[in-house]
Design a protein around this nucleic acid. Structure first.
Length: 115
DNA sequence: AACCTGACTTCGG
DNA sequence: TCCGAAGCCAGGT
């Protein structure tokens, strides 16, 4: 499906988050080219996770916590993360110092429509 | 065809 | 450090 360029970049960044690691909404937005577009990441995850088969569980908020609320996806996301080795504590928090994915930004800046 | 919303962050005072 | 306002924009109503 033909998405706008920025939407496509967001999708690509999300697809590159390694298994067992996490990224923040803002971080994905920054790598996609616009640090202030965190809400667009939210939008993409909400509307395209299923269609694009995205590893949506790897995106959490800036505080290292799962944003989804209990009964509305929180449990599913927590299980999915733990299943790939990411420890999530009782309050839905992940230690970013340990699990945050930190790729070289320059790598993404050069690609417009990688795969 | 406006208007509202959202799994958020950053900015400026 | 804290808080409201701004930024972002495709989808659903």
């Amino acid at each position: 499906m033909t998405h706008h360029p920025f939407t496509r970049r967001i999708i690509e960044v999300i697809r590159r988050i390694p298994r067992g690691r996490v990224a923040t909404y803002g971080g994905v937005a920054r790598l996609a080219g616009n640090a202030r577009a965190a809400r667009q990441v939210t939008r993409v995850l909400h509307t395209l996770s299923q269609k694009e088969g995205l590893p949506w569980q790897r995106v959490i908020n800036r505080e290292g916590r799962i944003s989804l609320r209990p009964g509305a996806g929180y449990e599913t996301q927590r299980r999915a993360l733990q299943a790939e080795g990411v420890h999530v504590d009782d309050t839905g928090r992940v230690n970013l110092e340990e699990y945050l994915w930190t790729p070289n930004p320059a790598h993404f800046a050069l690609e417009d429509d990688a795969e």
